[in-house]
Design a protein around this nucleic acid. Structure first.
Length: 1164
RNA sequence: GCUCGAGUGGCGGAAUUGGUAGACGCGCUGGAUUCAAAAUCCAGUGUUUUAGGACGUGCGGGUUCGAUUCCCGCCUCGAGUACCA
């Protein structure tokens, strides 16, 4: 080691030092130059083609970076730099996902404002990132927790609030357009993704509604809406817990009870986009496993809905529509009428059937419906597109006349229908006249758009139980129905006799947490409701059960149980002794259900007999639709996303409440800044932390945040929303923010910027975001596209998941107990626990008897005697000794590459180890065992990139991380291996410093004057590097650099023609050393702008090939032959070779396979 | 359970469409240099062997002149997801 560079050092020594590879100096120098010259600033206007490389931005945690974090950033940086060499205008930004839980938890514990913690963490992250020499354009940095950023998150939220999803146009539209539709024609023809069970209203009704009522209705259509959602509430902790924070029904922290509580929460109607999210996957270049998990998450299944009519609870209560005692209340009238309409359709009068016969075939030119419910009535025939009702009357009583007059008035006034009336007589005897009158009227009446939409009352409101099934073909195998215990109808259909049992069951299941219910799938539970449903085809009565194997949240929360075809139904049926009819030909269902779709032949199923799955499904769906009791349907597993969090450190909702209804804050008033609170906990009343803010009301008049109004004052003052947005809000659109560089105050991103950069060309990040960020972000982008805010439908064109870098934990073994066993009869003699802390070197006892010696020397037997008065171990040799050890994590920094522990450092680590004893190896070393685990602070296996940078340099770290293995694969970190890559960089440096005293030496002499091998090496490397980068195979290109440098070194190459392109090839990987060499080569511009070397095939052309000669597929020897030989010439050359005869041992070859340029194989 | 991915030396891994299995690096062994160490350089390193060879890419089959690569059946590990009707 040199003491100093001062006077005592000779000039000669100084020279040597200066020309060595001083990575620290070089790296500092270039990082500073890049920063000063803004080398990597992207321009929004350029002649060059654009390329956008993005990393998933990090959450700046307090722990800082470990070597696993930069892996993806290094890969993306290499690609970004490569693309710059290829002549692209590259956007490669970075930022922080800076809202989140850890900062808030820290705030709760310390009272420190999360903004401050976040700020500090970001500073530390930035410092660490800067050391690695990334080519980020930091001028475009984003932080999701900055008001100037979340202003636009709030703005986008308001766009969602201001939108509804039109299923007909299959896109989101402005809510204003929906108001216009409501004002002109009510909601009957609106085909929207919306809440269930919205009552129908007419235009005039809409206009009569109060503004609050209108808002209430509009909320049911908005893409972000308020809904009662069940959450896990922990009263003791005063907070809502996520599912994974609950273990066995109690909180993970503290073990407090958790109850299910309904809370009003904001939700996002992501389900509207289910199909488009699925379809979009075909258009993007993402890893298949990731696409698969999104596909699974969306969970599309094709099947049918079937409605089962609930039979009246007891025959004595009658069957008529008027006396359906169990269906009460206004909303149920439609349902009653509908089932009555069905009844009436089945039993038409003669006149009705004659007229229907004419109308149904569209003879009059328009589509008519028979016995159709309109408002509170059933009309005989209706043409919805012309709003024409046709009534056929029989003998009219006075009572009926009055009623009809009343309804006529209503229908005319409110719904704008024209009514034509005919008598039975007219229809039967004067059909032609009747028809021409209808036709004439139709001509006069104006058409109404979208009239083909039938008026369907909401599911379940008709006294029927709708179910979803993927196997409608098995409908004749239904022997019972099962509802989720939470199903709305349960209380309505349960008979008095079963009431108690059902209520007890519901109570019992409600107590079990969702987790418990899911974990325990073996116990079969359920209760009979006492009610029956009618099979839509056989008319049989089917018992209706409830059971917790049916989930309220999926499908309709009810299933038609087909025990012969579904294992769960089968188990349920067996358990409760329900019938299991078999509808599968030649299927054995004595032990389990027959769920094989492909080999199904249906039997015992009326008109489905002898059909296979596909045919039967097709036929039954047609039959369901014809009968009006069901239809083919696509169901999705995807649920709407809950968007509220009862947290402080997130975006506040720009919403205030007036008359209980949410109102948006004017967009020009954004951002709505997070208020200050004195504590980051929920309030005593269980409100979210924002409830503690002293100023958190909105003055509608002055448009400002104000204090709560005093009693009797503040007419224009309304409370603001107390929840905040979840983490994925800010990350769903951040890729667009980077695009904007100048007008960030005016827009989330300008049209010009959005149109120029379009979408992310390459996105690199972890696969853990598969069903979170990556799905939500796609959803928001599709929405933003619909509303004309962005030009693209998909945010990320190509995506790569980098694998995790795992840590190699070090384990030190602590003796817990010693177990003796007599040698004679193998009987246990005794356990001895150790009250001292004794550590034992790894595997020392595998060395047989040595172990015992060591034990004798180190564990004085008196210790054992003291511990147990009963047994005195006099002579350890007469026993078999078993040591029970406990593995304890030791910090990896105490362990060297030979797995030897620095005992002193370990002793000083923790107070409890200060006086520990160590049983060492014979050479006094102490070994630890190693195991690969996730890198984490708690496992003491974290390797800090700063340390690596200081010791080996950023270029070495970058290259080594790439060299470890394929980018997408998980791989363990092993610091010992880094010397190989570091040695390579030293060799690279040396290659350019082959002058006297290791001075820089590069000549302008063409390499062809030597052997010409150097150019071959160079072009081979160009080809390989280019292919590898394009395939993201960075590990193999590092090895090809090593090969190149090894070859060029042995060729003594110092030609500029080779070394200059080589520096460019390496620069994406090791940018600092490359810049330094580039400068030494005489360039003043950054190497990052140099064009990528062009590969030329001519240098790789070979004239001969070392042929492997195989016998029966086994390679025996090689033979160098000219490449231009014909097959025959190769054969004769091979056959003439002496070794050929030797391996043939006199046999005649049956066949000789020759693949010119590849291989020769002799068979025989 | 279902879906997806992966199994190659002591270790990380390579072999782009079936064509010389183990590139490159670590580690290990021996040597050179050094007072010594570090660093550097050189040689060797899949297993086995009677030194000819034999066996080797999780296991068992198959296709082929030839299989780490393709097909069938299993085993193990990892990830995601889970009573989804």
């Amino acid at each position: 080691m040199f003491r100093s560079l001062g006077e005592g050092t000779s000039f000669f020594q100084k020279k040597i030092i200066m020309s060595k590879y001083h990575f620290n100096e070089i790296e500092d120098k270039w990082q500073q130059i890049w920063r000063e010259r803004k080398t990597f600033k992207a321009e929004n206007k350029s002649e060059k083609p654009k390329y956008y490389v993005l990393d998933m931005f990090p959450y700046p945690s307090g722990a800082g970076l470990h070597v696993g974090h930069p892996l993806g950033y290094i890969a993306s940086d290499i690609y970004a730099r490569y693309k710059r060499h290829q002549g692209f205008n590259v956007l490669h930004p970075q930022g922080y996902d800076s809202f989140g839980l850890p900062a808030e938890q820290y705030a709760i514990q310390t009272g420190q404002h999360p903004a401050k913690t976040t700020e500090e963490n970001i500073a530390r992250y930035r410092e660490q990132l800067d050391k690695l020499g990334f080519s980020f354009d930091w001028s475009r940095e984003v932080r999701t927790s900055n008001p100037e950023y979340y202003r636009w998150t709030q703005w986008i939220f308001l766009q969602l609030f201001d939108s509804w999803y039109d299923k007909d146009q299959n896109k989101a539209r402005a809510i204003e357009e929906l108001r216009v539709i409501f004002s002109s024609e009510g909601n009957v023809h609106v085909n929207a993704v919306c809440d269930e069970g919205i009552a129908h209203f007419t235009a005039s009704e809409w206009l009569d509604f109060s503004e609050t009522k209108k808002q209430e209705i509009l909320l049911k259509y908005r893409l972000t809406y308020l809904a009662e959602t069940e959450v896990n509430w922990c009263p003791q902790l005063g907070t809502v817990l996520a599912n994974d924070e609950i273990v066995n029904g109690v909180s993970e922290r503290g073990g407090y009870p958790v109850v299910r509580k309904k809370m009003k929460q904001w939700s996002m109607r992501i389900t509207a986009y289910a199909q488009r999210l699925l379809d979009g996957l075909d258009k993007i270049d993402w890893p298949q496993p990731l696409k698969d998990s999104q596909t699974n998450w969306i969970g599309r299944s094709k099947g049918a809905t079937v409605e089962f009519k609930v039979l009246p609870p007891a025959p004595s209560e009658g069957r008529g529509a008027d006396s359906a005692g169990y269906l009460t209340g206004n909303s149920k009238i439609i349902g009653t009428l509908l089932s009555r309409a069905k009844e009436m359709r089945k039993n038409p009068t003669k006149a009705e059937s004659v007229l229907w016969n004419e109308l149904r075939t569209k003879k009059v030119g328009f589509k008519f419906r028979q016995q159709h419910p309109i408002d509170n009535y059933i009309v005989d025939f209706v043409c919805l597109s012309k709003r024409l009702i046709i009534e056929v009357d029989g003998e009219i009583h006075q009572y009926q006349l009055e009623k009809d007059g009343e309804r006529e008035l209503l229908l005319k006034e409110k719904k704008g229908f024209k009514i034509l009336r005919f008598t039975n007589d007219e229809v039967i005897n004067n059909l032609e006249t009747v028809l021409s009158k209808i036709e004439q009227t139709l001509k006069i009446l104006p058409s109404i758009e979208d009239s083909e939409q039938p008026q369907i009352p909401p599911l379940g409101a008709r006294g029927t139980i709708p179910v979803f099934t993927t196997r409608p073909d098995t409908i004749f195998g239904v022997s019972f129905m099962t509802l989720a215990p939470e199903h709305d109808l349960v209380s309505k259909i349960t008979t008095p006799e079963q009431k108690e049992a059902v209520e007890n069951y519901i109570e019992a299941t409600a107590k079990r947490s969702e987790r418990e219910r899911m974990a325990d799938v073996k116990t079969i539970t359920g209760v009979f409701t006492g009610a029956y449903a009618e099979h839509p085809f056989t008319g049989d009565s089917i018992p209706i059960w409830i059971g917790d194997y049916v989930l309220a949240g999926y499908g309709t929360g009810a299933v038609m149980s087909v025990p012969c075809g579904d294992q769960r139904d089968y188990d349920f049926a067996k358990h409760f002794n329900l019938p299991i009819p078999n509808i599968f030909k030649d299927a054995d269902i004595s032990e389990e259900a027959y769920s094989d779709k492909d080999n199904t032949i249906i039997t015992n199923s009326d008109f489905l007999n002898d059909l296979n799955y596909q045919q039967a499904t097709e036929k039954i769906i047609a039959a369901l639709e014809e009968k009006g009791v069901g239809e083919g349907k696509i169901n999705y597993r995807l649920r709407d996303a809950v968007f509220s969090r009862q947290r402080y450190w997130g975006e506040p909702f720009p919403i205030y409440y007036k008359d209980e209804m949410p109102h948006p804050i004017p967009t020009e008033c954004l951002p709505l800044r997070l208020p200050e609170v004195e504590k980051y906990l929920p309030t005593e009343e269980g409100e979210p932390p924002l409830g503690r803010a002293s100023k958190w009301y909105w003055n509608e008049k002055n448009n400002e945040v104000v204090s709560p109004p005093l009693e009797g004052q503040g007419e224009d003052i309304y409370p603001l929303e107390l929840n905040t947005m979840p983490g994925w809000a800010g990350s769903s659109w951040y890729m667009f923010r980077y695009m904007e560089d100048a007008k960030r105050d005016e827009v989330f991103a300008s049209k010009e910027a959005l149109n120029y950069w379009k979408n992310v060309d390459l996105y690199i990040g972890g696969s853990e975001h598969a069903t979170g960020h990556l799905l939500y972000s796609r959803f928001w982008v599709k929405f933003m596209h619909d509303r004309g805010l962005v030009p693209v439908e998909e945010p990320f064109k190509k995506l790569i998941n980098q694998g995790m870098i795992l840590g190699e934990s070090a384990f030190i073994q602590r003796i817990e107990r010693i177990y003796f066993e007599t040698k004679v009869d193998g009987k246990p003699f005794g356990y001895f626990s150790i009250d001292k802390t004794v550590f034992i070197s790894d595997k020392i006892f595998e060395k047989g008897e040595i172990g015992k010696e060591i034990l004798k020397d180190n564990l004085p037997l008196r210790e054992l005697d003291q511990k147990s008065n009963e047994y005195i171990i006099q002579n350890i040799d007469s026993y078999r000794v078993k040591i029970i050890v406990n593995n304890i994590h030791a910090d990896v920094s105490f362990v060297n590459i030979h797995n030897e522990l620095d005992i002193e450092a370990f002793k000083n680590w923790r107070e409890e180890y200060k006086n520990a004893e160590f049983i060492t190896e014979e050479d006094d070393s102490f070994k630890v065992s190693r195991e690969v685990e996730k890198m984490s602070k708690s496992k003491y296996n974290v390797v800090n990139p700063d340390d690596i940078c200081n010791q080996y340099g950023a270029d070495t770290l970058r290259m080594y991380e790439m060299f470890l293995g394929p980018l997408e694969q998980a791989k363990p970190w092993n610091t010992a291996g880094i010397t190989g890559v570091h040695g390579f960089l030293k060799k690279l440096w040396k290659l350019y410093h082959s002058g006297p005293n290791d001075s820089f030496y590069v000549t302008d002499t063409p390499p062809s004057e030597g052997l010409g091998e150097a150019l071959k090496t160079l072009h081979k490397t160009i080809k390989k590097t280019q292919e590898d980068i394009e395939h993201f195979s960075f590990n193999t290109s590092v090895s090809s650099f090593m090969i190149a440098v090894n070859e060029l070194t042995s060729q003594n190459c110092n030609s500029r023609e080779v070394l200059e392109p080589l520096a460019i090839l390496i620069s994406p990987y090791a940018p600092h050393i490359a810049e330094e060499l580039w400068q030494k080569l005489g360039h003043s511009e950054s190497i990052s702008t140099a064009p990528f070397p062009k590969f030329e095939q001519q240098y790789l052309v070979e004239s001969s090939k070392e042929y492997p000669i195989s016998f029966n597929g086994k390679m025996r020897f090689t033979l160098e032959l000219p490449l231009d030989l014909s097959k025959d010439e190769i054969e004769s050359a091979v056959m003439a070779h002496e070794k050929t005869a030797q391996y043939l041992e006199g046999r005649t070859p049956k066949k000789v396979i020759i693949v010119p340029g590849k291989i020769v194989n002799i068979v025989g």
